[in-house]
Amino acid sequence: MIGTWAVGGAFVPGARGRRAFITVIPCLWVLGALCWELLTPHDTEVVPLLAAAPAIACASSGRRRCILLLGGASVLFALGPPSTLEPDGDVEEPHASLVSCGAILAVVVASYLTNGRRLRLVRELEQLRAVAAAAQDAVLRPLPARLDGIEMAAGYLSASRGAAVGGDLYEVLATAHGVRVIIGDARGHGLGAIGTVAAVLGSFREAAHDEPELTDVMRRLDRALQRHLHERALGDPPAGEEPRTPVAEEFVTVLLLEVGADGELAALNCGHPWPYLLSEEATGEPRAHRLDLGEVLPPLGPFALADDLPAARGAPLQPGDALVLHTDGAEDARDAHGTFFELGPALVKAAGTGPIVPATVVDGVRSAVLRHTGGRLADDVALLVLRNEAKTG
């Protein structure tokens, strides 16, 4: 199960209410202009303000029918006789109303043509978003709700608007060697990091099945990343930039995790935060504490892997307990005062009392992060919750 989190956190009215309000704006403008015309002295010329109504309709609702209706109504009002409140209406300028009508018609035509171009651009944007969504789903595939006795849920919050994925990555696979998990963070965020994410995930999806040892899986990931960076460095650099070298600044933090049949844990960590263990106490209250399974190696990319890469071993994941894997964007998130987000307490609050439900934990942390940051994220955030479904005792 995967949830793509939308950036934002402030309360906004429903979509139906917004659409209704936007549609009413140009009507209010026309009504205001007419009231002004009726209630001000006869020498105050307000009718030309009606010419703005079609332009406002184009900018707000964007509906051609609304533009034409408001334009037609404005022309009729401009051609109408002086109001009874203005008995001395100006008759010495018979062409004034025609000039106002001409201005209104010109604005209607310009707004109509502009709206047509706008609609074409909107359709193209919707097509591009559909293509991008399909590509993003291929890179960061939706996870199943359950896999070999592990209940799971994942969520991703991109710091770049319009992007569903970015520099964070994760995957869970059932293999002959156990359930294997990867979570990582490529340098940068948003769409610019997707190429690196695709290279690492593509390698993991093959190596996790082929290699019996986590050490060999990590070496395969490192080789795939080096090839990707080398190929990228050979390409043409952006205008005004020097050619990029393969390993000068690019890196990826990676945590590999293996859950055996009886919950045994094995891990290999290259520069990534260790996960939290979320467990249910005898009282029914949840408890979260960070696991420390051993040495953290340098991230992949800048440095060669050591010859000796022993996988760390941890206590088995007990039935009902959950592992919470995350990227550093979760704990680096800050509010307007620069206060960091506290992930541990947020996990406890999101879990609530009773059995741990991964999807509930993910949704609770999502809401907490957005409230804390006000929807303004400096980095991508990924969260992956894995619960041992085996029955206790």
Rank of each mutant, 00 (worst) to 15 (best):
H209M: 00
Q226T: 13
E211A: 08
V200Y: 04
R227G: 01
A239T: 14
F251I: 04
R220L: 08
R219P: 14
A208R: 00
G195T: 12
P246Q: 13
T215S: 14
G195L: 13
A224G: 03
L225V: 07
G240C: 09
G240E: 09
P238R: 12
M218E: 07
L265C: 12
A198R: 14
D222G: 02
G192I: 10
V259C: 09
M218T: 09
R232L: 13
T253C: 07
A261R: 15
R244G: 04
G235K: 08
G240V: 11
H209T: 01
I194W: 01
R232T: 15
R205Y: 02
E249A: 11
T253W: 10
D210P: 00
E213C: 05
E241T: 15
D236V: 15
T196F: 03
A207D: 02
V254G: 03
R223F: 10
E206S: 09
E231K: 11
V200F: 06
D222F: 08
A199G: 03
A208M: 00
P243R: 02
L234M: 14
T253Q: 05
V252N: 05
V247F: 06
P238D: 10
L229Y: 08
D262N: 12
E249Y: 06
E211K: 09
L234W: 06
P212R: 05
S203L: 01
H209I: 05
G235I: 04
G235W: 04
I194A: 11
S203F: 03
L229S: 13
L191W: 07
E211D: 06
T196G: 14
R223M: 12
L257S: 05
A261P: 01
E213I: 01
L256V: 10
R227E: 14
L229C: 15
E206G: 04
L255M: 09
L265N: 02
E231W: 12
E249L: 07
R223T: 15
A193C: 11
